[in-house]
């Protein structure tokens, strides 16, 4: 007889669902292989001809697996999720205190962005900004990894601070991308 555990799967955290250890550094290939194996077994396409009940359940499970996969796949969302598992509550309304160095760097990027449209070649300028954002993000993620590879011993305050910095960069990035779209539309 197979295990009769009822809704055990629904209560698993994302790492457990994919049979992976809770750690920031992740075997991404394993993650996506496990994702595919899971979807092969529960995706609604495998139940297209099944009872209404099975269809419903399969949509629920497939959605849960998608959510878990998207969370773990993105370094940023993965970091936030690990912190949440450690009990950190993110309040999107709060304004945390930022390091002066970081703020300086932010202001420079923002100035470059606002002066962009008057530039002769805004696209290449924009590419430069996007590239430096990428570098800055990568740097923070490296620092986050140091903290979150062993979540039990992580400095949660430090990690949360880094997450806030990432959010700042994200905001800049989406503003840059909005400008990029504008530039594209103008062409």
């Amino acid at each position: 007889m197979t295990s009769l555990a009822g809704n055990a799967v629904l209560t698993q955290n994302h790492f457990e669902l994919f049979s992976l250890p809770v750690s920031f550094d992740l075997d991404l290939q394993q993650l996506s292989a496990n994702f595919r194996a899971l979807q092969q077994s529960v995706h609604p396409d495998r139940f297209a001809n099944a009872s209404a009940q099975e269809k419903r359940l399969s949509v629920q499970r497939a959605a849960q697996i998608n959510e878990a996969y998207q969370t773990l796949k993105s370094p940023q969302r993965r970091a936030r999720y690990i912190l949440e598992l450690q009990g950190v509550v993110f309040d999107d309304q709060s304004n945390p205190v930022m390091e002066p160095m970081f703020l300086m760097q932010q202001m420079e990027l923002r100035e470059a962005l606002s002066g962009l449209k008057s530039k002769a070649n805004p696209e290449s300028e924009l590419d430069k900004i996007l590239a430096s954002l990428k570098v800055a993000k990568k740097e923070i993620l490296t620092q986050l990894a140091e903290q979150l590879n062993t979540p039990e011993t992580a400095d949660l305050d430090k990690a949360s601070q880094l997450m806030h910095e990432l959010q700042f960069l994200d905001k800049l990035q989406s503003e840059s991308e909005a400008i990029e779209e504008e530039l594209m539309d103008r062409l």
Binding site: A37, L38, Q40, S41, V42, R46, S51, A52, E54
Partner: peptide
Amino acid sequence: AMQELDKVAEVFVSRRMDSNIRKAMAGHNV
């Protein structure tokens, strides 16, 4: 009658789905 069958089969369906998930993760593919 279909709805009734659906209802009594609920626990079975749910176990099967979870068992699928476990099998997939145990390295047994579909």
